[in-house]
Every structure is written in structure tokens, then in C-alpha cells.
């Protein structure tokens, strides 16, 4: 078994595009779920409207990338308002059901044949990221340390991605230690109490939904640029569930929780994938037990089991403080 390769791949995964995408998605979700207690199960929809907003604007209408980004951002805001306005006055589980339903509607619309003229149907869209890579300041070559290196395109996408992660974390940090963040946390604890103190709970929930959605939509941009393509089935419920796992892994309601969670998450997945692949090619595991194709399934089983165990035994996350358990303990 080539442990060098396994380690290299794990390190690449730790800082790679997937980590950035899910860190951003989870930072947004952390605002919803961790700080405000909103059960948003449609985070993938925010990624989708951003990714497709960008891709359609650029690839189908030939408009500039910047306009695509603006349209993506606006779509996320509109989506948040559409989802939140009717449901945020209702009990928490209604938001959960409406958001998951809306995310599925969004995905089905993007993959539908009838709209494929604009969306590319189930194949999705490509050819929209040239604008992004045309301003790449990195010249041809590989960047990184030793074998953990990336070519100039990936390096550029990662640079932009990690900058967005940093900015998002700073924003969340500033907001959550302000009186505004205090209101959000109070809503998570007991919204009636907050109402009784004269705060417009509905408005704050809506603001939280918009903020988290916009942060999630940054993930959609990075995903789109990183792959130079958008594909509808990436935006399924599993993406949202991965983001939940990451939020809980890193510790809900902690500024850096989602980032650390995403790094651990993708490092672990890379390790299991690579160790299994290597073990198979070394002949330790026979085809009767696990075919190469099935290695990909193991990852999902592990995520599932991991999410359950975390939630049952360490709901505060790997590094969390049990005292300030940010999840509902009732």
C-alpha cells in the first residue's frame, strides 16, 4: 500500500475545493441552525441558485461573470425571502419541510428536459468559467508544498475560495458578538421570551435566513468555478445533509466550527476512499466483499453512521463545550 499517496491525497483533500465548498455551505447553515435554531434543510438550493445563476447568465446569455455573481447573490436573497416569509411564523418543523421541498423543486427544475435549453438538463452547464480564470494571477505551473500541490487553475480557485471562507468567518465573528447576534442566539433559546422583550423575532429569523443563504451561495460559486461546470444532482438533499454533519462535527454556533468540520470531514473521506482503494489493489479485500464501485458507497455509510454517533454521543461537536451546547437539549 502506498501510504505516501494516501497521506498526500488526504492533505490535498483537507484544503481542496470540496472542503472550501462545504465549509462555506456549512458556515451559512451554522448561522441558520447553530446560531438561530432554524431548521433549514434546503441549503443545497442556495448553492444551486447561485451556481446556476452564474452559469446561465454567462454561458447562455454571454453576459459578464460579475453580473452572473450579482444575479446569483440576488437569487439567494430572493430564495431566502420566498422560503422564509411564509414559514418563519410557523412551528420549526414547517420550515424544515418547506425548505427540503423547495430544494427538491429547484433541483428538479434545473434538471428537467423542458428547461434544458437554459439549464442543460441533467447534464448541467459548462463553459462559463473563462471569465473567472482569465483574471487568474497565477502563471502556469504547480503551487504548493512537495506533493501537496495544485495547478494554476485550482490554485486560483482555492485562493478565491479560502479568501471567501476567511471573509465569511470574520463577518460571522463580528455579527455574533454584536447585539444583533445576541438576538439570534436568544431566538434559538426561546423565541417567545425574545418577543416579550420587544424584538421582532420574525424579522431577525428572516435576516438570519438571508445571511446564511447568501453565505451558502458563495459555496455555489466556488463549486461552479472549481469544476468549471454545474450539474443538478450535486444540489440534492445529500449535500445539505453533509453540511449538517460538518456543522455538528465542528461544533454548532462556533465561528470556525464549520471550517474545521469541513476539513476533518473531507480528510476522513479521502482517507477511507484511498485506504480502501489501496487495500483492494493490494489484494487485502476481495471483490466478493467490496468492488471498486462500492467503495464510493462506503463513504456515505460512514457519513451516516458518523452523523448518528456524533449526535448521540457528542452533540457539541468534536471540540465543543458541553456547557454551551448549541443544540436543542429539550
Amino acid at each position: 500500500m502506498d501510504w505516501g499517496l494516501i497521506i498526500t491525497n488526504a492533505l490535498r483533500a483537507m484544503v481542496g475545493i470540496d472542503t472550501v465548498v462545504f465549509a462555506l455551505a456549512a458556515i451559512g447553515l451554522n448561522v441558520h441552525f447553530g446560531y438561530t435554531g432554524l431548521l433549514n434543510f434546503g441549503q443545497s438550493a442556495f448553492l444551486a441558485v447561485a451556481g446556476y445563476g452564474l452559469a446561465i447568465t454567462v454561458a447562455e446569455f454571454g453576459l459578464p461573470t460579475l453580473l452572473g455573481v450579482v444575479i446569483g447573490l440576488l437569487s439567494a436573497v430572493v430564495l431566502a425571502l420566498l422560503l422564509g416569509a411564509p414559514t418563519l411564523r410557523l412551528r420549526a418543523d414547517y420550515l424544515a419541510i418547506v425548505t427540503i421541498a423547495a430544494a427538491e423543486i429547484v433541483r428538479l427544475l434545473y434538471r428537467s428536459v423542458s428547461l434544458s435549453e437554459y439549464t442543460g438538463g441533467s447534464d448541467g452547464l459548462g463553459r462559463f468559467s473563462e471569465g473567472f480564470y482569465s483574471i487568474n494571477p497565477f502563471s502556469d505551473g504547480r503551487y504548493g508544498i512537495g506533493r501537496v500541490s495544485f495547478d494554476e487553475r485550482v490554485t486560483w480557485a482555492l485562493t478565491v475560495g479560502w479568501s471567501l471562507v476567511l471573509l465569511s468567518c470574520v463577518l460571522v465573528f463580528l455579527l455574533m458578538r454584536s447585539p444583533w447576534g445576541r438576538v439570534l442566539k436568544a431566538i434559538r433559546e426561546d423565541e417567545d421570551a425574545v418577543r416579550s422583550l420587544g424584538k421582532n423575532v420574525y424579522s431577525y429569523k428572516l435576516q438570519s435566513l438571508v445571511l446564511g443563504g447568501v453565505l451558502g451561495c458563495l459555496a455555489g460559486f466556488v463549486y461552479a468555478w472549481g469544476r468549471a461546470a454545474v450539474q443538478p444532482d450535486f444540489f440534492g438533499t445529500e449535500t445539505t445533509f453533509f453540511a449538517y454533519t460538518i456543522v455538528i462535527l465542528g461544533g454548532a454556533a462556533r465561528v470556525l466550527g464549520p471550517v474545521i468540520g469541513a476539513m476533518i470531514f473531507w480528510t476522513l473521506l479521502s482517507l477511507t476512499d484511498n485506504v480502501l482503494t489501496q487495500a483492494k489493489s493490494a489484494g487485502y479485500i476481495s471483490d466478493a466483499i467490496l468492488t471498486n464501485f462500492e467503495i464510493g458507497q462506503v463513504r456515505f455509510m460512514l457519513v451516516g453512521i458518523g452523523l448518528m454517533l456524533l449526535m448521540i454521543f457528542r452533540p457539541q461537536g468534536l471540540f465543543g463545550d458541553r456547557r454551551e451546547l448549541a443544540l436543542d437539549a429539550r
Binding site: A96, F300, M301, L307, M308, L327
Partner: peptide
């Protein structure tokens, strides 16, 4: 209940 809801998601995925 919310913690249990998340557990059901993990179980479903698994």
C-alpha cells in the same frame, strides 16, 4: 427532538 431528527438523517443515509 431536533437532535433525534438529525439522527434520523444519519440513519437514512447509512
Amino acid at each position: 427532538l431536533i437532535a433525534m431528527l438529525v439522527v434520523t438523517i444519519g440513519l437514512a443515509l447509512f
